[in-house]
Amino acid sequence: MFVINCPYCGERDQQEFKAGGEAHIERPKQPTELSDDEWAEYLFMRKNIKGVQYERWNHAHGCRKWFNMIRDTSNDEIKAIYKMGEKPPSI
């Protein structure tokens, strides 16, 4: 349980948010060209990092906007928050 600084609303309790999993997984540009292995990679395989991870969050009980977060999953410390479409800041 922690506090998240929503880029649109400011600091709110984590329970207002919904975690959206790993960030920057790009949808295949040519889905019809993909092999089954590549589909499996895209759909299911995750880094699931113990340490600094890039992830998506949604302010579900607030502005309902999506944004990105860099968070250390070994201690839940939030390193950076940035909007969708923005380049991740260096940390």
């Binding site: 999993g21 990679e41 395989m45 880094k47 699931n48 999953t73």
Partner: peptide, 18 residues
């Protein structure tokens, strides 16, 4: 819960979230 950590050491990915 640490399966992905070990998988990363071996250079493979698993469909898991911890």
């Amino acid at each position: 819960g640490h399966s992905s950590v070990i998988a990363n050491m071996a250079g493979i990915r698993l469909p898991l979230e911890s």
